[in-house]
Amino acid sequence: MRDPENAAVLSEAVYRLQISQPERALTLAASVLERAPTDSNAAHLVAVALLELERPEEAASIAADLLSAVPDDPVLRGLWAEIQQALGDFVEAERTYLDLLRQSPGDVSLICNYAGLMWETLRLEKAERLYAEALRHDPEHEDASLGHLFCRLSSGSVAVDDPELRKRVDQQPDAAASVVAVAVALVEAKRFAEAMPLLQLLLRGDPSNSALVGAIVECRLALHPLMWPYRPMVRWGWLASGVIYVVMMGFAVAARPLSERLPAWGAWVLTGVLGAYAVWVLGSWAVPPALRRLIRKRGV
């Protein structure tokens, strides 16, 4: 029978995992494991916490030990699949998920994890089908809902301006899933002004998220007044750059014979236009990185 003190500590460790505090969970579960080295629940929690802390190699070693004692335990095998996925062994992860799904075809978390693997390996259509299947079992499942939304946004079966989707974001700003999906889609569509408040909302809930900070910095950069001359490049990328280059080269070729026929002020105008283009080109190399550095340093 388990020591009640250890049980209380493990109960807190489970709670810490639920509230995204894997470091504390690891400390607690490891302390129990030190006192009771044969406690498989403690070892399991240590492995889960290590996986959350992005230390899959250590998690794999503990999970392998546990599986050698109970090779058919579905929870442990699910963890094993997640660890293999984190380690990049997608074949082993998929094999394990498929085995488990044969035994429990209605396990929504398992379906979502398998869909996540499909998403990671860019099999997006299969991922979308799996998320839809998960939602059929549990329409309120948050991970399934988020995954499905991402898949639909990326396949174009739902647009970022979809009224239902925007209504969901407006009415439930706390529902991170839909906010994440819409924010990512807006950034990809280069609609930075609309993406910014959503990204800020997400960052307020998770301020240590460097990916969100990076996205906000890029939004601020794109929206900065000093970047206005480079709007076409921000919006259309290299295509805009190439078109402007071709136009300006054509203009430069035409300018030489033209300038001989124009009065003096006309030649100055032509020179000014070409000079401005040269400044614009130089600025396109210098302004964005300098501005990005300033935004990162000062947050402006």
């Binding site: 307020r204 301020p207 900070v213």
Partner: peptide
């Protein structure tokens, strides 16, 4: 650094 993210970028 996390607090900086919150107040400088998160519009806290």
């Amino acid at each position: 650094r996390t607090a900086k993210n919150l107040v400088k970028y998160g519009g806290a």
